[in-house]
Nucleic acid binder design. Structure first.
Lengths: 237, 237
DNA sequence: CGGAAAGTTGAATGAGCTCAAATGGCGTGG
DNA sequence: CCACGCCATTTGAGCTCATTCAACTTTCCG
């Protein structure tokens, strides 16, 4: 039932893995789903953890990150509501997790024992297929981010991030002035884009001075000129 | 039979998707497998292609790349013998390919109609599970490369590439002096590592002058000091 | 050999980083 | 309601590392 509810929520975004199954097929899995809440900054998965975790994110935003020997953090991906966490069938054996998964905002999710998820997937190929499909899509997306990180200028990275966030926020392009709320601090943006806080800030100011965006305060961004923003983002992508 | 043969070859490396199935189960798929050879530089998949291609690589090396509007090429991944090309079940509909896939060396592979691969996977969950497992592993690997590209210095990128290539070549660490043959030109290394040809060359020279590696000519590299090489690679990974 | 492609080396430029200080927003406590 | 302190963000100045542009050397093949 917890699972069923979460599914209906996730289903709205058309992303929940469980959305491919009828409610009654989910009963065995739903029975062992645990509803959890995470505070901002709380860690769901530590890199190196042996115990595999599987979960569906319902509300909030999480980061997949890695801390290098020099102590610098790199965010290699974000997880949004509807996204699935975990690696069932990864390598046959339960491999230790390669990355930390941490809540950037208050998060609610529905967590399952990995073994039970695997059993459900064996019984319901449609669910496994949905996970494969999504994983392949994610792979393509990460490769695209890789190519941006390899070559793009600081301005293009920042402009690209704002564009993608606006897209994620499900905003109409037809609006005269779009206002979005960035889900990340400057520091988190820097970790995601492979820049420093100062450089991120400078590029934001640059876009503001050029009249492309407005910064009314907090983490809000007004998009005045979407075309110019997209153009800045594609400079060297 | 073509497929059967290729499987035995790939199976040696323990990577072929078909390796998880008994030979007789493969008969229907094998019947429509086509053996192909690609010359160096030949393209298997163009970005934007609607017709999905599925194939197993038997010999040679391929690159997954993207050319940005400025004409710069970025290599987002390499494909080695035993690797699988293609995105069955991706997004439900046949999505256009997001990247080019091009032969870096002479390549031989075994190609299948995507629809047939999908049908085989529906019939044989073990094969689909193997693809999922491998895709999840690849996702982790790409994320690791992402974090290196985000922060690592030019020296660390080059040293890391040499280390990984030595690993891929299946070389014993116990040897006194290991000699490997880099599969990529300086230009290709630059595209892979997000650097310029000149910078790659300078870092190679630097490692040589430090006594860490030797450059006996061609694309050969002698690894004199694996520990120092690994240390250079992890500086800011 | 000889020509073309690949690789190396040098000098100057510049984008982004580091270090440092100023500004602004916001909750707490008087 | 205001003063204070904390934290995030912005702005400034100098520096570093990788790039750019250019010349030179080596390797590869016909």
């Amino acid at each position: 039932m917890v699972f069923g509810n979460s599914c209906k929520q996730c289903g709205v975004r058309g992303q929940a893995l469980c959305g491919v199954l009828a409610d009654e097929e989910l009963a065995p899995l739903a029975a062992c789903g645990v509803q959890r809440s995470l505070a901002r900054g709380e860690t769901l998965v530590h890199a190196g953890d042996k115990a595999p975790i599987c979960a569906n994110i319902q509300r909030g935003l999480m980061k997949i990150s890695h801390i290098n020997p020099a102590g610098q953090e790199v965010i290699v991906g974000l997880l949004w509501p509807g996204d699935f966490v975990g690696t069932p069938f990864a390598g046959g054996q339960p491999l230790p997790a390669t990355h930390d998964i941490v809540a950037l905002t208050p998060v609610s999710l529905c967590q399952f024992p990995q073994a039970r998820v695997e059993r459900t997937m064996v019984a319901h190929p449609a669910m496994e297929r949905a996970l494969l499909s999504r994983t392949l899509a994610e792979l393509g997306a990460v490769r695209t981010r890789l190519s941006r990180l390899a070559r793009a200028t600081a301005l293009a990275r920042v402009a690209g991030f704002i564009t993608e966030t606006a897209h994620r926020s499900g905003v109409d392009d037809g609006e005269t002035v779009t206002i979005i709320e960035l889900p990340l601090s400057r520091g988190e943006m820097a970790d995601l884009l492979g820049l420093t806080i100062e450089t991120v800030s400078r590029q934001m100011t640059r876009l503001k001075n050029a009249g492309v965006i407005g910064l009314p305060g907090g983490r809000r961004v007004e998009i005045h000129d979407p075309d110019a923003l997209a153009e800045a983002a594609e400079e060297l992508v």
